[in-house]
Design a protein around this nucleic acid. Sequence first.
DNA 1: TAGTTCATTGAACACTGTTCAGGTAGGGAT
DNA 2: ATCCCTACCTGAACAGTGTTCAATGAACTA
Lengths: 198, 198
Amino acid sequence: MAHDTTKRREALRESLIGLAEAQVRADGLASLRARTLAKEAGCAVGAIYNVFDDMTGLTLAVNGRTFGRLGKHVSDAVAKVADAPPTERLVAMAIAYLEFASANPNLWRALFDVEMSTDRDVPEWYMQELGRLFAIIAQPLSELHPDPEPGEIDLMTRALFSSVHGIVLLGLENRISAVPRERMEGMIEFLLKRATAT
Amino acid sequence: MAHDTTKRREALRESLIGLAEAQVRADGLASLRARTLAKEAGCAVGAIYNVFDDMTGLTLAVNGRTFGRLGKHVSDAVAKVADAPPTERLVAMAIAYLEFASANPNLWRALFDVEMSTDRDVPEWYMQELGRLFAIIAQPLSELHPDPEPGEIDLMTRALFSSVHGIVLLGLENRISAVPRERMEGMIEFLLKRATAT
DNA sequence: TAGTTCATTGAACACTGTTCAGGTAGGGAT
DNA sequence: ATCCCTACCTGAACAGTGTTCAATGAACTA
């Protein structure tokens, strides 16, 4: 029956995503193997391709989950200080971003390491999720600048997100120069307070 | 003769680096193939391994050249405005960094995409070159803060470099959201002026 | 029960980076 | 001139990878 097949496939799909996620979390995106995954899931290698276009498709599915959790983590953090001044809310968000990346380094890196260079389009949920994240950041900025020039808020949003991302990225890259956690928080606070000072 | 062999190897080494660099520049690090490279160099695949430990070693050699050119580009840029105020010099450096990354996206990305996770140590020249870059950045910052607390200059240096790096990284990542060049310069100027305002 | 449809399988394919037994070339001794 | 010996270079072979598709088998229909 068609419906039964659909359900079984959906179950396999979820199973594969979960197993792949565990693998990426433990040993990084580069350690993901089609054969190993199939063995763990108790299916044939070919079955993966009945459910995903290719391994990149599977990786995108894992990233979808990660992105969701990241968004929730940041949202929750800012919700806890909803009544604080805008700058403090920005700092809370950035620290939450650092926390998530630090707690899930391999999953977080996979968000950016997946290769989408070839024909494949960026998934729609990717842009949506990113838009949601940017909207959260833009809110405090709008409060700080009630009468912005056109595009100013968007520019600041991107600039601040990119900056915090850069600090987290190079900070966690221990091969270049391991930076202690509290110093990273210090950098982020310093930067955001300066950048948003009136 | 031993000397002759050494010279031939050195020539092959240089040739391989040059060819690999051209390949990375044109199509990115991921497009580098041992067999293709050997064919282009007119040698056997095994010959590559007489000269480099492995393909990562070759990539590191390419990155060494790139890093050198990047450093020179940034140094030259700041030298041209040596008499300008510290903040302007910082902006000039950051814009130069953006220029280089924008003009050599694939070579620039290769600097960070090479996988060094496994045993291999970070080459000594890597840390040296990075230290040199940081020193150039630290100079204007020291002028802005004549009496810094211990480690303050270092913290700011890392924070500002990481921030600019993040802006350039995500800005050039057109798959996420292509940002026009002049807006990226705007972001960098905005950020550095705010961060270094007295 | 026989026939038809269609999802699943896993061996085979094309492609990696890397190795190492063997052929080759060149200098020195007899 | 001949032989040897050393050291270098070669490229077929190896151990992997992601991906495909003819063949299997199960399930549903008449």
